[in-house]
Each structure stands twice: as C-alpha cells, then as structure tokens.
C-alpha cells in the first residue's frame, strides 16, 4: 500500500508538472500545424507567467491575472506572426528574439516594480488558482485504489489543470471535425492549395498564431498562479523547449501530445523523487539523467531511430505567391 501511495504521489506530481507542458505543446501544435514554427514558446510562457502574476498582484484577482497573461502572450505571438507571415522572416530567428526579449523584459520590469531581483510578491488566496475538490472526493476517497485515485489524482487540481485536459479533446475535435481545422491542416501542408481554394492563408495563420498565444498564455499563468504563487525570472526553466520536444515526439497530434507531456511531466516528478535514493542493484541514478531523458528521446526520434517525425510540410516556410 505504501508503494501505491508513492505512485499516487509521483503521478499527481507528474500531472502538475505536465500541465504547463500540455498547454504549451497544444499552443505549438496550433501554430506549427498552420505552418508557423514557434521556438518562442519558452519566452511566451515567461511572458504569460509574469503578466499573470503582476496583474494578480495589482488586483488580487487570479482571473484578471489570467486575462492579462493571455493578452500579453497574444501580443508576443502577434509579433512573431507579423515577422513570420507578413515579413516572411526566418521563423527561428524571430522565435529566438521573442525568447530573449521575454527573458530580459520580464525580469527587468519585475525588478523595476518590486525591487526583489525580478521576483513578484508572494500571492495568496483569490490571487491564485486554488485546488478544487470534486464532489464526493472525501467519502469516495475511502474506497481503496479507485477511490484513492479519484481523490488524489483526479480531484484536487485547479481550474487551469482541468482546462488543459479539456483542451486536448477540444483541439482534436477542432482540428479534425471543423472547417477551420481542415483549413488549418491544409495550410500547414500546402498554402497554395488553400489560397487557390479562395481561403486567406494570412487569415488562417494569424488565427493559429493567436490561438497559440492564448494557450501558451494559460501555460504561463499556470506556472505563476497555480504551480507557484509568484513570478520569478527564468521560472519556465526550459519547459517551453520541452513542450517543443513533446510536440515533435507526438508528431504534431493532440492525443499523443497529451501522452508525451504527461510522460515528460512524470519523468520530471520521478527525477525529483529519486534524488539521492539508492535503488537496489542500480544504485543512485543521477537526477540529471532522468531530467535530460525528454531531450535525448526527442533527438533519437528526430534521428529516425524510432519511427520518423515529419513536420507539416510547409512549416517554417513563408508563403509567397509563385509567378
């Protein structure tokens, strides 16, 4: 039973660590499916986390924080969109710029306002997204295993977490069952086909970029207003890039994205848990080995050693009408 509890704990922790990955990964999915490569997820996550925490501090309302965080990331996304869609820029360069500016600006402004090295004050209560106890969690929780899973794994998360999980089927449905989704999948593969069908390539890509901004904004807000209770510089700590790796690993599909992000979140939780623990027969596993597993797995996948990850054909390529 003790082992079971440990697993429940690690899984719970894995879910919490996986949520920002899921949201950012879905964000990247929308953008890249439309043909706009986004390596700026990391920077946008920071932007969302900072704007969310700042406005939650000013107003004491987590919801206003969320609105501010999402607005800020949509603006950042639109800059990337303008560069990628209208200026036909190198999207890698543009994403790199977003990452740098976000990294610097969030810390700079945070420091200028609160003079705590960029950290925002500790938030509490209404300024945060608190855990929601689902109905019957207490009573049903007494049931062994199933009840325990319900109580500790399914119940007790905040609203953003539930939203993240709901957004996966929503994304799937939107992508494969709606007109917008069909057009979006098409524009990432062959924008000329979309253009000649009388549909605006630009309009589609901007829509996708805005959706990306909203989702990655949620991811950032989750970091500062649900996972932590403050913003601090560089707090995304590479999660944006892990989300990018997960996107490659999931081959740009929503359900595999969920699975991959949960796996990567779980690995992260496991690494923390195994820190300094001597395993029988193996000895201590360096925590860094587990932490770098997502990156290594992604490289191995990209190298085509386990299947092949083929990005949307037009991703990263600005659309220019051919003469």
């Amino acid at each position: 039973m003790e082992l079971f509890d440990t697993f429940i704990q690690i899984f719970g922790s894995g879910i919490r660590l996986g949520v920002p990955l899921i949201l950012a990964c879905l964000a990247g999915l929308w953008s890249e499916r439309s043909g706009v490569v986004d390596i700026g997820l990391e920077g946008k996550m920071l932007t969302g986390a900072f704007a969310g925490a700042a406005f939650a501090t000013f107003t004491g309302s987590a919801w206003i924080g969320l609105l501010a965080g999402v607005t800020a990331t949509v603006v950042a996304s639109l800059i990337h969109g303008y560069a990628s869609i209208d200026q036909r820029a190198n999207q890698i360069v543009s994403g790199t710029a977003i990452n740098m500016v976000a990294d610097g600006l969030t810390a700079l402004i945070g420091n200028a306002i609160w003079s705590q090295g960029g950290r925002t004050p500790q938030l509490s209560d209404t300024a945060l997204f608190n855990a929601i106890t689902l109905p019957f969690a207490e009573s049903f929780g007494a049931v062994p295993i199933v009840g325990s899973i319900y109580r500790h794994l399914i119940s007790g998360h905040d609203i953003v977490t539930y939203a993240a999980f709901a957004l996966v089927p929503l994304t799937y449905w939107a992508l494969y069952s709606t007109r917008f989704g069909l057009r979006l999948r098409a524009v990432g593969e062959n924008p000329a086909a979309v253009d000649t069908a009388g549909i605006s390539v630009r309009g589609l890509r901007y829509s996708a970029v805005i959706i990306c901004g909203v989702l990655v904004g949620l991811s950032g807000v989750y970091l500062s207003l649900a996972q932590a209770a403050f913003f601090q510089p560089h707090m995304s700590a590479g999660k944006g890039f892990i989300a990018l790796a997960a996107l490659v690993f999931a081959k740009w599909r929503p359900w595999p994205a969920l699975a991959t992000c949960l796996l990567f979140g779980f690995l992260d939780a496991l690494a923390t848990r195994l820190q300094g623990v001597e395993l029988p027969a193996i000895g201590a596993i360096p925590v860094q080995a587990i932490q770098s597993l997502p990156y290594i797995l992604t490289v191995v996948l990209l190298a085509g050693f386990i299947g092949k990850a083929i990005p949307p054909r037009a991703s990263g390529i600005p659309y220019v009408k051919e003469r």
Binding site: S177, T178, R179, L182, R183, A186, V194, A197, G198, I199
Partner: peptide
C-alpha cells in the same frame, strides 16, 4: 471539401 465545406462543421 477544402474551401467548400458547407458550414463550420465538417460532418
């Protein structure tokens, strides 16, 4: 169907 979907839902 692309561009002639006949409504916001594909079905």
């Amino acid at each position: 169907m692309l561009g002639a979907e006949g409504g916001p839902l594909l079905a």
